[in-house]
Design a protein around this nucleic acid. Structure first.
Lengths: 135, 135
DNA sequence: GCTAAAGTTTAACCTTATGGGAAGGTCAAG
DNA sequence: CTTGACCTTCCCATAAGGTTAAACTTTAGC
């Protein structure tokens, strides 16, 4: 009795694009889904949950490779939550490092922008810094 | 008497890779540089300064397109620093927004990771959240 | 002066995650 | 039967590089 959805409907329901759903299937993230006689992909409720899973993973910035691992763990009833947590904490660390890098850049940019008067004259601390001999 | 450098030397001196210097030339960021009779690119001091400029711009996270604009402004003696500042402030804003997004993600990940015991049992708040019905 | 190593050339393909479009098949309504 | 909205596969493009390979040039050793 499960309502089967075409890829467009599944896309709308999951928040992914049809394009990406095909891509996820082709790259092995999703198993090949059944088709109609004429070749249209059909998605059931279980598969729709997987699409939601992927979208939430992407929203949290996990790479497709990480999502692949997470999906496999999710599908495995004998998984150890240790493995899930390890992936999440690695990603957490990556995110923290990226934040630190961006904050560093943000500070420099802010300082430079404050030193550039931004009027009709050509003199500009930003260009001077980019051109300057010292790093 | 300006010492001319081959691409490898220019790469070492500027901190870019030879590959990227060619890439920047091919994509129009740099003008075509003179070659030896046998086709080797040669860089003078002025061009080396441009390479440094590009590297510093990349370090600050400017896109090649933004660096292209900045380089053109730098080369233009009649520039208005207003234009430079506008590019920098737009980038600053982009960086700030990226930081905010990552901090949001960081908070969610931290909360989820703290709720996952990370042992040999399969139950895991992280998977539950990715799979869960509510966003 | 010869040879071998190191450097350079172009070109092509790989990456990540996603968008765009062409060319053609299918389906439902009118 | 036509029209329009879907769907299919396939190829191309993005940003900012990395890697590899074949062929040529330059440099250093001897």
């Amino acid at each position: 009795m499960t309502k089967l959805l075409t890829i467009g409907e599944a896309a709308k329901a999951s928040g992914l694009s049809a394009k990406m759903i095909r891509h996820y299937e082709q790259s092995g993230l999703l198993e090949k889904t059944p088709r109609t006689e004429s070749g249209y992909r059909l998605y059931n409720a279980q598969q729709l949950r997987q699409l939601h899973f992927i979208r939430r993973g992407r929203q949290l910035g996990f790479s497709l490779e990480e999502i692949h691992s997470l999906l496999n763990l999710w599908r495995d009833p004998g998984r150890e939550s240790r493995e899930v947590k390890q992936i999440a904490e690695q990603h957490l660390q990556d995110v923290a490092q990226k934040i630190a890098e961006l904050q560093q850049i943000h500070g420099v940019l802010q300082k430079l922008a404050s030193q550039c008067c931004g009027d009709s004259h050509p003199d500009c601390a930003i260009l001077d810094s980019l051109a300057g001999p010292e790093t």
